[in-house]
Design a protein around this nucleic acid. Structure first.
Lengths: 333, 333
DNA sequence: ATGAAAGCGCTAACAA
DNA sequence: TTGTTAGCGCTTTCAT
């Protein structure tokens, strides 16, 4: 293994000069810097992370806690976190709580000691998690807390736009298949729906109730949607929409001719569904990147590359309509 | 931060005793051990990773290189790797090459210096990757190399079983939508198909050619499948099968009544498709876990928990048939 | 069975 | 601008 010593000797300088040449190039004479970097190249020196971290007290990694890596939503989030962190020279430790909130505190306390900060995606029990964090900076994703920075998707706006799309197609009775009652993001969606409902005359929004945010949830809601007299249904997310599609197909209902269906999140699921789902694109990767950026600032690291700074304590991400094959004008009565 | 020193002082012993009590309990008197562990509990001591790693020369992490974290196949793989590594007290650094083989060597050389070993999932250019690895243990996933240990899915067997399923339903003309020509796993699949074709009398396997292993690939192949006179089509993977379904639906072809379709891998995609895909389950998470186990042994760490040891240089994972809604008996002529 | 002590490779004062 | 030096917290001989 090549160490600072080897480089120093070969370059005829002291180890601190080498160290500086690498981490604070402007504090070293140009000529020296060049000589040092040349030797570094030649010898193939790579800094020993453990040593530098031990000394500096930093770990060079961020932790990311997700409920399930196999869920495309969180896979995308992880991808965003990963790419931004890599750019910033940090690594990402991913902890998968396996949808089990009871694992979270344990996972977290493990992560906390191995990272400079943690990004919490949809933690179930923030209070419990909070205890073990012990001063480590944390960023919440799609959740909020007075003491913590956070990043979230603008689900309210998402629903306003979804309704606008359906309304423009001519729908006047729209059903909503809700997600977990206690979920903050379901609340946001409902707020958006209300806003949209109030905005347009002669538009009715039907609340079908709370369902599991998975394919099963949609399957459970499908017949309710059919019976409601709605000509369009908005689902809590893409998976729920897929569940709707499944049962509707089984009932011989033609989507979109007889019933329009919208998903939310634009995950892979919306592209895989048949028909492909009209959905609201939310920039989940962007959320991951934004979370890393926030962490970087919070911890006083340089955000790099002249990006716009995310100084805000809370950042809301924009959404976008994606029209595919599952929505159309309602059939004339 | 609580250090060994603090514990030592509180327990009235030396730091080396504490260290031993923790890492080699049998080399310490029972009474001492108990006293030490009590103090550890009380003070909430947790070892400083950086320090211990610096001293021992290990990093405590494994690297995982995947082409795309958003692909459900690799998401599952990552999940498997993650969970087993966590169990073994190691962390996972995930590098996403973003489907760009040219990134791989660079990513790899970064990973290599931050980890004790790397797990390579489907590297595109092994030769190039090889150069930068520089003695770091590596495990190949779904690829093989004479000098490297590897884990792969038994795609040959998968195809044999797929054909058996269709044959049992009464199909005699079966089309195959192939994946990338140079892909080793496509070769395996073809070998399996040949085996199955030879095994049964009056069974015809039609090769539709090589396609992109994504939804688009299936879309491209759909009309070929229809024109081939086959009553069933096996796709390279689930995504390709979804592409088939999409076009078949557009052509008004009833799946499975007029055409049976099979996917492969049992990723999320197969459950999301309409109709849900009959597919071959392959234990991708298991592959990830097996890869970690192999690494653990290769590097002389204890595999823990009395698991069956994966001493083999190469491990093949079993597959399983999953019947859903996309296959049925062919319509009587 | 336990303790003393020597570093692992690096960073960050502090001096020069 | 550069060099000297003191550790970071831990593991691991080597004594005792």
């Amino acid at each position: 293994m090549v160490t600072l010593h080897d480089v120093a000797r070969a370059a005829g300088v002291s180890i601190s000069t080498v160290s500086r040449a690498l981490s604070a190039p402007d504090k070293v004479a140009e000529a020296t810097r060049r000589r040092v970097t040349a030797v570094v190249q030649e010898l193939g020196y790579t800094p020993n992370r453990a040593a530098s971290l031990l000394r500096s007290g930093r770990t060079g990694s961020v932790g990311l806690v997700v409920p399930d890596l196999e869920n495309p939503y969180f896979a995308s989030l992880a991808k965003g976190v990963q790419s931004r962190a890599q750019e910033a020279g940090m690594s990402v430790l991913i902890a998968d709580s396996d949808e089990n909130p009871r694992h979270e505190p344990e996972l977290l306390s493990q992560l906390v000691q191995q990272t400079d900060g943690v990004l919490l995606a949809a933690p179930r029990d923030l209070a419990a998690d909070f205890g073990v964090m012990d001063g480590t900076p944390a960023i919440l994703i799609n959740a909020e807390h007075p003491d913590l920075a956070s990043v979230s998707v603008d689900y309210e706006e998402a629903m306003v736009r979804a309704v606008a799309h359906l309304r423009a197609l001519g729908h006047t009775r729209i059903a909503y298949v809700g997600g977990p009652t206690r979920s903050r993001s379901d609340g946001q969606r409902r707020a958006g729906l209300k806003l949209a409902g109030d905005q347009y005359d002669g538009l009715e929004i039907l609340d079908l109730g709370a369902f599991s945010p998975k394919v099963e949830g949609g399957e459970a809601a499908a017949d309710l949607a059919l019976g409601s007299g709605a000509t369009a249904t908005i689902a809590y997310n893409d998976l729920v929409a897929v569940g709707l599609l499944r049962i509707l197909a089984r009932r011989g209902v033609d989507v979109p001719a007889q019933m329009s269906v919208m998903g939310c999140d634009d995950t892979l699921a919306s592209q895989l569904a048949t028909p492909a789902l009209t959905t609201m694109y939310v920039d989940i990767r962007g959320a991951g990147e934004a979370a890393v950026n926030m962490f970087l600032e919070l911890s006083g690291r340089t955000p790099g590359k002249g990006r716009v700074s995310d100084l805000a304590e809370h950042r809301t991400l924009p959404v976008q309509l994606v029209v595919r094959d599952s929505t159309a004008a309602p059939r004339r009565a």
